[in-house]
Write a protein that binds this DNA or RNA. Structure first.
Length: 488
RNA sequence: GCUCCGGUGGUGUAGUCCGGCCAAUCAUUUCGGCCUUUCGAGCCGAAGACUCGGGUUCGAAUCCCGGCCGGAGCACCA
């Protein structure tokens, strides 16, 4: 007992220091953002970005902006505009404001013009290959020497040019030791139709440009992003310098590798279109909606991401870890039921006690939830895989000997079963049951039968099928219940 | 190739900034035990790591140098 008291005491301070390192810079009025590209619904990788942002905002009472980065019409998947907020809500991430970059083109144009006027950006009419050749050798391209007037004139005509004919470049350092940093593109021409803008604009900002402008204008105090943006951060700082803006605090985190599912959004989309996957919530996908459908709790993902934190080292998260954590959440909430896969109807020969109602608690640790009642009269369904020679105890009912096809009554007392360490197996009554299908994590299906009490469940309920595992009720069909399997 | 960034048990982390309190934390995992009834759950217990080599120091997971391994970026994508 004493131990318990001590444990509670020492646990408190521990919970406080979880995961996230303290934010550098100011903690007052922080403004953070989550800025996905709307190419599909959110997957586990997105939570890597969304969760720490949300958590910092929560801890410091700051502001979180959801900024939809839809400046590449070719990569916009229209339903994603709806799906992203839904996914965030599930995750428990609450944005204070939602902004679409596609609403902000005039702002980008305005800043672009200012840059040109400052001589900090120039219209470049070189073709890509030529520019790269020069740039890689620390040579400025001829356009770099254009006068402000010439640039302004070209800028005005930009809209009338052919896609690919010119771009707007931000001046950096043509001798920068990393060629990637040298004079990057800020604006390009794009003829593809945009889902929200149609063909209203042809001049599109590049990510590095729109991101810098927005981060500044929206008052971001800290920018959290993957270390794949390290070079972009350096590029963007040149723009801040040109404009005389203060640079926010940048924090870069490592890559998150997800065991098994290396599935990119574009691959998933292909698979859905060709019928390989049933949809964005196919159990094989790593989307948040697929994970949710399987009964993985948002808190499991959220906590795991916080635990991983924002350090630069890469990390790999395993399903084992997710399942283990999730089980801790599910264990107390999931009521227990019997399910038999590939049910075999059997008769217990020699059983003469007649019909009895077997009562078994919905959850052994929560007796207040009551019992379920299973009528037993010597005839039951067993899972095919459980029918093996030997002595078994039908849970809470009787002990039987199985010998090939023959199943005979042995005894009723539990002690007899214990004495021989008989395996205790679940069963389903003949007269009160329901067809059950369980969709597994690899999309295969377990077909079987479950006890009648399952009929009281509602979609979304999570149960534990004893000796099978945890599953979430996904659909109540006319003649069967369809579950999605979470884990053991 | 060039530029940059990492490296604590199987996995994720704490500790690294400001060397000793670290024979290294917690979780997951694996294994074992327990259980008047899930030996696929639960409960209890155990196992398992500082990338390597030098250096500095009385003392290094922590500081320095080098190697090895891993990752990212090098677009008119985000």
């Amino acid at each position: 007992m004493e131990k318990l008291g001590v444990e509670v005491e020492t646990k408190k301070p521990k919970a406080k220091e979880t995961g996230l390192q303290e934010l550098p810079g100011t903690h007052e009025n922080i403004v953070l953002r989550f800025a996905p590209n709307p190419s599909g619904p959110l997957h586990i990788g997105h939570s890597r970005a969304a969760v720490p942002n949300a958590e910092y905002v929560k801890r410091h009472n700051g502001k979180l902006i959801l900024r939809i980065e839809d400046t590449d019409p070719k990569r916009v998947y229209e339903p994603a505009y709806e799906m992203i907020p839904e996914d965030l809500e599930w995750l428990g991430v609450k944005a204070d404001e939602i902004i679409y970059q596609s609403d902000r083109f005039e702002i980008y144009y305005d800043i672009a013009r200012q840059l040109i006027e400052k001589g900090a950006a120039y219209m470049c009419t070189c073709d890509g290959a030529t520019f790269k050749e020069l740039k890689d050798n620390c040579k400025p391209c001829p356009c770099r020497d254009n006068s402000v007037e010439e640039n302004l004139e070209l800028w005005e005509k930009f809209d009338t040019m052919q896609a690919g004919e010119a771009v707007l470049r931000v001046k950096t350092d043509i001798n920068h030791k990393n060629p990637a940093i040298r004079d990057w593109v800020a604006m390009r021409l794009e003829d593809a139709e945009h889902p929200r803008l149609g063909t209203k604009y042809r001049i599109y900002p590049m990510m590095n440009f729109s991101v810098s402008v927005d981060d500044h204008l929206m008052g971001l105090t800290h920018v959290l992003r993957g270390k794949d943006h390290l070079a972009n951060t350096e590029k963007q700082k040149y723009l801040y310098d040109h404009m005389g803006w203060d640079v926010p605090e940048y924090i870069h985190y490592g890559r998150l590798k997800m065991e098994d599912i290396a599935l990119s959004t574009s691959k998933a989309k292909e698979g859905i279109e060709d019928g390989t996957y049933s949809g964005w919530d196919d159990p094989r996908l790593g989307t948040l909606r697929a994970i949710a459908r399987r009964g993985i709790q948002a808190k499991t993902i959220y906590d795991l991401i916080i635990e991983i934190g924002v350090k630069m080292a890469d990390s790999a998260i395993s399903w084992k870890k997710i399942y283990g954590q999730n089980r801790n959440f599910l264990e107390p909430i999931a009521n227990r039921y019997f399910f038999c896969e590939n049910p075999q109807k059997i008769t217990v020969e020699g059983y003469t006690e007649g019909r009895v109602d077997i009562e078994r608690p919905l959850h052994a640790d929560h007796m207040d939830r009551g019992n379920r009642v299973l009528p037993f009269d010597g005839e039951v369904y067993l899972a095919q895989s459980d029918i093996k020679d030997g002595m078994f105890r039908l849970m809470d009912a009787v002990n039987v000997d199985i010998n090939g096809e023959e199943i005979t009554y042995h005894s009723t007392s539990f002690e007899d079963a214990r004495a021989v360490k008989a395996r205790i197996i679940q069963w389903v009554p003949l007269e009160d049951n329901v067809n059950v299908k369980i969709v597994m994590d690899d999309a295969s299906i377990k077909t079987g039968i479950g006890e009648g009490a399952l009929k009281n469940l509602e979609v979304g309920d999570i149960v534990q099928f004893e000796r099978v595992g945890f599953a979430r009720l996904d659909e109540i069909a006319d003649d069967e219940l369809i579950f999605y399997f979470a884990h053991k």
